[in-house]
């Protein structure tokens, strides 16, 4: 490799790192300047002590968990069935799961409000539980491209058809096959889909704001519009959560002994 190529490589790497790291550094540095003249964690303390932060954060975490459960419940059997019995339908199913990337969240939420408003045939927005359910359904849709791809990739690493037939010949029904054989073998893939879903739900604004639910995204926006240092502290916290999720994916990978199996 010539010196020139090597230098260009290093420059590209440093440029990329700077592109990502500098704004983050600036953000973090500014979030520490709440006390005049010295660096302090005042903004973080204030944010964490804010009861609204705790409530909205807790709400979003619970919504994320519900969304993950809904997503796994919907995607795992679908992806499994498509691989096992309907391989010809795969391109169509993939296309459908990609739609949320091209249809904006605002279109989805307006559709929901129009279909399920209080004067409709199914007035879901009339109750808190109903609206929560709509929000979870919306989040599931938004996370669908990531969840489907993660699980489908996981299923590709195992011989779904033969494992299913082996389990069937031993007397297992579909629930046992999915719960005891397929899910544990794609658990790492399911977890990475779950963490991606978690990261999406924690920061999501449009659906929660338009359905008027006390989620973390709208809270972030409100603080950002009204406070000087706190929104930056909140952004750093959100970054840490997201990166924490990524770290957890790696950790999950490391702790599953049988994933080292050549398949």
């Amino acid at each position: 490799m010539s010196l020139w190529t090597r230098l260009t490589g290093w420059f590209a790497l440093l440029f990329g790192l700077g592109y990502f790291a500098l704004p983050l550094l600036g953000l973090t540095e500014f979030s520490l300047r709440a006390r005049r003249g010295v660096y302090s964690l005042d903004a973080y303390a204030k944010v964490i002590a804010d009861p609204e932060f705790q409530q909205t954060f807790l709400y979003s975490v619970s919504m994320a968990l519900v969304t993950i459960a809904l997503g796994v419940f919907l995607v795992l059997p679908t992806a499994f069935w498509v691989r096992l019995r309907l391989p010809a339908a795969r391109p169509y199913v993939e296309f459908i799961t990609l739609l949320p990337l091209v249809i904006p969240a605002i279109v989805i939420v307006f559709g929901y409000i129009r279909l399920y408003n209080t004067s409709s045939w199914l007035p879901l927005t009339g109750t808190i539980m109903g609206t929560n359910f709509l929000l979870a359904a919306g989040y599931t849709t938004l996370a669908l491209p990531y969840m489907y791809r993660a699980i489908d990739t996981g299923l590709r690493t195992i011989d779904v058809a033969t494992l299913t037939e082996a389990a069937q010949s031993l007397g297992a029904g579909w629930t046992t096959i999915l719960g005891r054989i397929i899910l544990p073998n794609v658990l790492v893939a399911v977890l990475s889909g779950a963490f991606l879903t978690f990261a999406i739900v924690i920061g999501e604004f449009t659906l929660a704001a338009l359905l008027d639910r006390p989620a973390f995204g709208p809270y972030l926006q409100r603080i950002g519009a009204n406070k000087p240092y706190e929104p930056f502290a909140l952004s750093v916290i959100t970054f840490i959560i997201t990166w924490g999720c990524m770290g957890l994916i790696q950790l999950a990978n490391r702790f599953t002994t049988y994933t080292k199996a050549p398949r």
């Binding site: 195992i158 033969t162 494992l163 037939e165 082996a166 389990a167 544990p184 073998n185 049988y258 398949r263």
Partner: peptide, 10 residues
């Protein structure tokens, strides 16, 4: 018994 063993890896 299958050609590819089909043991449950987990």
């Amino acid at each position: 018994v299958f050609q590819a063993y089909a043991l449950f890896p987990n």
